[in-house]
Amino acid sequence: MAQQGPAPTEPATAAAPEVSLTIPVAPEMEIVATAQAEALGEYMDMSRDKIDEVKLALVEACINAFEHAHTEDNQVHITFRVGGSAGEWLEIEVRDRGRGFDAEGIESPSPQKTFEERRRRGWGLHIIKSLMDVVEIASGDWGTRILMRKYK
């Protein structure tokens, strides 16, 4: 569901209670973000295993921005939303103001490419999509936004 072009406006779930966090592009700052995800997951009684999946997906989204976005403000902006009538889902939006990328043009990784062609990197977006229930990627010259949701 990658989108190219102009910056997206407010997400459809803008009314959900939300927590915002801005982290600098610096080693291990992604772990600061996972602490927030863990706290919200525990607040909504999400299982330990699902919280771990959310944390890893968030780590991958952050390091993707750290490595590829080349942001001018050297920051990654993260918004957490707990939604549904009884806290049924946790949504995380990771946004940078970097140079964007062609999400449609990214070649899918595979174990064969990893082991036989020794192309070991490029797994981040694939892992995010495998661990989260809903993932939307929008990217353009305004930056990149990864919106991901996990149901309890």
Binding site: D52, E53, P111, Q112, T114, W123, I127, S130, L131
Partner: peptide
């Protein structure tokens, strides 16, 4: 953990 196990399998390490 189940998440690490799943990720190892996704990336082919388990093969």
């Amino acid at each position: 953990t189940p998440t690490i196990d799943k990720t190892f399998r996704i990336m082919g390490l388990a093969q």
